[in-house]
Amino acid sequence: MEHYFELMKYLAAYLLASLAGKEPTADSLVESLKKANVEDLDDAQIKLVIDQLKGKKIEDVIAAGKERLSSVPTGGASAGASAAAGATEEAAQEAAEEEEEEESSSEGGFGGLF
């Protein structure tokens, strides 16, 4: 996963060059990233971005990415996790209430003084 985050800086530079109306090159990406004080540039990743996007319209690439993201399930797992957490919290509350009732009835209401 970290590889993808690392690749994003090169993709961002590519998009900026494209939006400026220029044909992105390795040199233009390096120049943009250096202006943004990005260090540790990886020539292989720059070449990968250039090669993978060369000749493609950015609008088409973004549309294809949106289409891929639309197939990723969202919300279902977190809704289930929220329900489970709520049920666990409710069970813990009930157990605490039962414990309080047992303590007060067995101690005659004196809270453990005797």
Rank of each mutant, 00 (worst) to 15 (best):
E101A: 09
A85P: 01
K34T: 11
E59D: 14
A64C: 08
Y10L: 02
R68E: 15
E31G: 05
Q93F: 14
H3L: 13
A13F: 00
E39R: 12
A36N: 12
D51L: 07
A64Q: 12
E90H: 11
A63T: 05
F114C: 01
Y4T: 10
A36E: 12
E6H: 09
A95L: 09
S82K: 14
D43H: 08
E97F: 04
E90S: 11
N37C: 08
I46C: 11
K22T: 09
L113H: 05
D27Q: 11
I50Y: 01
D40I: 01
E98I: 06
A81D: 07
F110H: 06
D60R: 05
Q93L: 15
L7V: 01
L11N: 03
F114D: 07
L113D: 02
I58T: 15
A87W: 07
G86S: 14
M8P: 01
E31I: 04
K54L: 07
E2V: 05
G76V: 08
K54H: 12
L41Y: 03
L15E: 15
A96F: 08
A95N: 06
L15V: 15
E94P: 02
E90D: 14
L41M: 02
K66M: 14
A91F: 08
E90N: 10
E67P: 05
E99G: 00
M8A: 12
E89W: 04
L41K: 01
H3R: 14
H3S: 08
A96T: 05
A92G: 03
E2C: 04
D27W: 03
N37Y: 08
M8Y: 06
K47M: 04
E94C: 05
G21D: 00
Y4I: 11
N37E: 15
D51S: 11
G76W: 06
A17H: 02
Y14V: 00
T74G: 09
G108N: 00
D42A: 10
K66D: 08
G86Q: 13
R68Q: 15
L41F: 03
G112Q: 01
A91L: 06
Y14M: 05
E101W: 02
S32M: 13
A79E: 14
E103M: 01
Y4E: 09
K35M: 08
